[in-house]
Every structure is written in C-alpha cells, then in structure tokens.
Design a protein around this nucleic acid. Structure first.
Lengths: 198, 198
DNA sequence: TCCCTTTTAGAATAGGCGGTCTACAAGTCG
DNA sequence: CGACTTGTAGACCGCCTATTCTAAAAGGGA
C-alpha cells in the first residue's frame, strides 16, 4: 500500500499466519506478546503496534484469516449444486481432513475457542460462527426431510444435533491425536439414518 | 485434622468447590489468583498458599474434585449390571443432564480443557481422562458387536468414534446454550445402528 | 541534495502476575 | 498463666504483561 517511507522488514501476511497458528494452538490468553513477536518474524514491539494495533485486534484478524484460509471446508453446507446429504457429508469430511492436516495445528480454532478467549467480546466472535454452522446444519436436515433423503420416522432435530455435536467433537478428537481414518469412520456411522440410494 | 492452633476462618471444601467452578468456567490460564481468592471466600494469599500450595496444585486438586463430584456420570460405562448399549446410553444421557445443569458451569471441565492448560503437564491430566473414556467406549461397542446388540454389518470403530465425538461435542453444545432436549435427541439419533429389541 | 513518510530498535512505563515474608491473632494444651 | 501451634493480614518481591515513547534509519519524490 504505502508508496513512500521506509519499507517494513517482515512479511505482514506471513506474520498474521504465524500468529493465527499460535492462537490456534494455545488460545488467546495463553499466548504472550513476546511469543507472538518471535513467531511473527522477530519484529519489534513498535512495529507490531504500528501494523496490528493491539493483541486483541490481532486475534480478531487471526480469526478472520482462519475463516478465509481454513474455515472454508464447511462452505459446502450451502452448496446449491449438492443435495442436502452430500452438503453435510462433504462438509464433515473436508473438516476432518483439514483438522488432521499436520501442516498446521490440529482441531478447529472456532470450536476450541469455546472456552478460551473469555475476556471481552472475544468469545462472541467464535460463538457466532458456531451458531451459524448449527443453523446451516439444521437447514440441510430439514430440506432432506422434505425431499425424502432421510429414512422415514427419524427425528430431524436429533439428526441435526447429532451431526452438529460430532462436528464439534472432531476438534477435540483431532487434538487428542485420533487418526483421520477413525474420524472418517465416525462420520460414516453418523449417516445411518439416511437413505444411501436415491 | 489439626487439634491445636488457630482455626481457619473459611470453609476449605467450599473454597475448593468455588475454585473448581472458576477453572471449569474459564480454564487454568484465564483465571487469576486474585479471582480465586475472592471466589474462595476472601482468604489471604498466605492462607491460600498454606492450604493449597500453589495455583497449579489447586488446579490438580480441582480436577480431582471434579472427577469425584461431577465426572461420575460416566461411571456406568463400566457398570457390569448393564448390557453394553445401556452402559453407553446411560453414560451419555447422564452426561448431558449434568452438563446442562444450571447449578454449575456448563459443559465438561475435562473436555473443554483440550485447549486450555497448555503449560506444563497440566494438559496431560485431562487428556489421559479423555483417552480413558475413549477406551471404555470402544470396549462397550466391541462387546456389543460380539453379543449381537449392534445391527449386522455396522463398523464398530466408526460407531465408537461417533459416540466418542458426540460425547465430546456435547461439551461445546452445552457451552453454547443448546437445550438439553436437543442434546438428548442427538443421543437418541446416535443409536440408530443398534437393535432396540433384544 | 533535502524533505517527507514510514519503520525500526530499544528504553521506559504502569500494572498484573504468582509467590514469599514478617508480624500479629486466635485458638489448644500443660 | 505461659508455651506452642496454626491461620491471617498485608507489605513486599521479582518477573512478566501489554502498551507507549524516543530517536534513529531507510526508503521515495522533488
């Protein structure tokens, strides 16, 4: 952006990525500014505050970055090209794959922040996102009920809550090192109320 | 225990309970000693260190207290008087009831600590407990497979992981205020691979 | 070249942290 | 009544926290 002035000596995007990984791994409270500075390329405190304003603002930016960079795995929940079941299953499987990817911290930043970031309105940031996902899952299931994709007689609210709970639980399982195959098997078992034909 | 000396002015058990609730609500890192002292009855720092040794030791005591006082809801996983399915279902339903009880923080201290308490060996404390539960669930499912309680052709590892994931996810759902009825419906849906007769 | 803008390093600040120390208070026991 | 034991109040410690300030440095534009 700036056309004049001394150029910065670090890569801002790389710094934000590193900060995101740190928050993802440990949560807002448990990460100190010192850790952040070192991980973000060794910039000085002055540089940090000039570029990122504050630790809290950095966290907000990190959540936004996470949603764009890793949270897209659940975008298929609203993919109009897929029938409801596929929307749900693809979202779950892509989520599992992402959360088990060893190239970044395991689990989901949004889900794991349910306890962390208690101070200020930071918790609402991730809670809103979880509520949004919950609503989308409910919508898929309701559509599936109407279109006959669900086996007759099943309770749609229960199915939706089961898949929501599983999706959230995957974060903790991935954190605990449960292998992806096992999580994928769990997802398969989560769809036994659905017709595989059709 | 001490038969002599000045009697303490606070209730040690009540103090431990209050501390447990604080850790339960916010996690180890996010709770300060000052907060603890106030919640534990307004005792002084000297009294605190005399009775509880350190913040970290208090956390360990709090986890132990939690397991005895609230963690017993999953004891039925090893109840020899129940068939495997009942063991699992009772444990899940009692867990849901406990975690939605408004008389204490919502969710499960053990599950929600997957991210918190990163420092030292504190994380292992709760991770071990989660691994133990995971093993018990697997054992129930394997027994059920052998005894024919599971519908033929289902994948036992998937069923076990599904129930494990749901159990963990309940913590976050409860945290987010999902009502107990909804969680109970999720549990019901989680058993559709099982024979209800027999 | 000199100015202007932006970033830099590093010192400084103010407050919070977990934890300790000292002096005193409140009981029991002989 | 002392002697002893235990708990309490509050000052104190050193460290770490997030944040700000000062002064120098590194580029572009004219």
């Amino acid at each position: 952006m700036p056309r004049t002035g001394r150029p910065r000596e670090y890569d801002r995007d790389a710094a934000l990525r590193a900060a995101t990984h740190l928050f993802w791994e440990h949560g807002f409270d448990a990460v100190s500014l010192e850790q952040l500075l070192k991980a973000m390329g060794g910039l000085s405190k002055a540089s940090f505050y000039a570029a990122f304003k504050s630790k809290e603002q950095l966290y907000r930016d990190a959540v936004a970055y996470y949603l764009v960079e890793h949270g897209r795995v659940s975008d298929d929940l609203v993919n109009p090209a897929l029938p409801p079941r596929k929307r749900l299953e693809v979202a779950l499987r892509r989520t599992a794959a992402m959360q088990c990817d060893p190239s970044h911290p395991s689990g989901c930043l949004i889900g794991l922040s349910a306890m962390t970031a208690a101070t200020g309105g930071l918790n609402a940031l991730t809670a809103d996102e979880r509520a949004r996902n919950r609503a989308l899952i409910g919508q898929c299931v309701r559509e599936a009920l109407a279109s006959g994709e669900l086996k007759p007689g099943v309770e749609p609210d229960g199915v939706a809550a089961l898949l929501d709970g599983l999706l959230l639980g995957i974060s903790i399982m991935a954190r605990d090192g449960v292998p992806r195959d096992t999580i994928d098997a769990a997802i398969s078992s989560g769809f036994s109320d659905w017709r595989s034909d059709l």
